[in-house]
Nucleic acid binder design. Structure first.
Length: 264
DNA sequence: AACCGGCTCAACCGCCGAAGC
DNA sequence: CGCTTCGGCGGTTGAGCCGGT
């Protein structure tokens, strides 16, 4: 299920499975500074990965709001309905399923739903004298001229797509979009024994206390040397508090020679 | 218990459009 | 206008899982 760790001989960048340590570095960096430039991020975060790999890992796996585990009936019907209308526009479909990623939806379609739709259609074809019907369910069919942006969804009052509908996915309520199952994010940090629990709680507050769809950090705590400071995940929490309390990172540069600008 | 083949899904790859110069 | 960089997207891959034999 996971790829064998390997290393690209031409670039020296690591490929394949992400290790818990790499995940931790990425989470710590992104929650601290945000993703200001994916290409540059791995260098600052101390990761031997390409920016694309970091971006993918974060968006598909490490983001705190990722919903994992089994799909609900509503979610599956939404995917089927949207796919009938939009085709393989997975990112657009994912936009209507809070907490689900395009990659995950794509996988679920190819492994489960596609087959189910095919079976439903063939069953319907049999029931209708052998005339195949184009979609899983006639009531899910949208007008042929539905726009690519799927204008009909909100108008149809889909509970999965309407942020103002509090029945299922109220965007203001984080609990509704968090998976009941532990996310990798949860598992990773519960398993990372060398991380100070209190510090992590502090970090969680930082991640979750603003409106969910706002950037995780609107305004990183930046000193004069922010863009030239190396990032040391292993010392992250300690330094985080120093930085948060001191703001002026010159203090760090003066008193902690580990901050070596030459790294850059 | 061992083998095998299908399934799952994290991750990679290549392409494309937007933005900046 | 062309080139470069970057983020985003969809298709594909392949190692591990799992159920059947």
């Amino acid at each position: 299920m996971v790829r064998t760790p390997s290393r690209d001989l031409t670039s020296g960048l690591k490929k394949g499975t992400w290790t818990p340590e790499e995940d931790r570095k990425l989470i710590e960096y992104v929650t601290r500074y945000g993703c200001w430039n994916w290409r540059q991020l791995p260098k600052f975060a101390g990761l031997a990965r390409c920016g694309k790999s970091c971006r993918l890992r974060w968006l598909n796996y490490l983001r705190p709001n990722i919903k994992r585990g089994n799909y609900t009936m509503e979610e599956e019907e939404t995917i089927i309905r949207l796919h009938a209308s939009m085709g393989n526009r997975w990112s657009a479909i994912a936009a209507h399923l809070p907490g689900r990623t395009d990659n995950e939806i794509k996988n679920h379609w190819h492994t489960t739903l596609k087959r189910r739709v095919r079976q439903q259609n063939s069953a319907q074809a049999t029931a209708h004298g052998g005339v195949p019907t184009p979609n899983f369910s006639p009531e899910h069919q949208l007008p042929a001229d539905s726009s690519p942006e799927f204008v009909g969804i909100e108008q149809q009052g889909s509970p999965n797509s309407n942020p103002s509908n509090g029945d299922h996915h109220d965007y203001q309520n984080f609990a509704d979009i968090f998976s009941p199952q532990p996310t990798v994010y949860d598992q990773l940090f519960s398993a990372t024994s060398n991380i100070n629990a209190a510090a992590f709680n502090k970090t969680e507050e930082l991640i979750f206390d603003d409106a969910f769809f706002e950037p995780i950090f609107e305004e990183p705590i930046i000193g004069d040397h922010f863009w030239t400071e190396p990032f040391f995940p292993d010392n992250f929490y300690m330094e985080n508090y120093f930085i948060a309390s001191m703001i002026d990172t010159d203090y760090l540069l003066d008193d902690y020679p580990i901050f070596d600008l030459e790294i850059l």
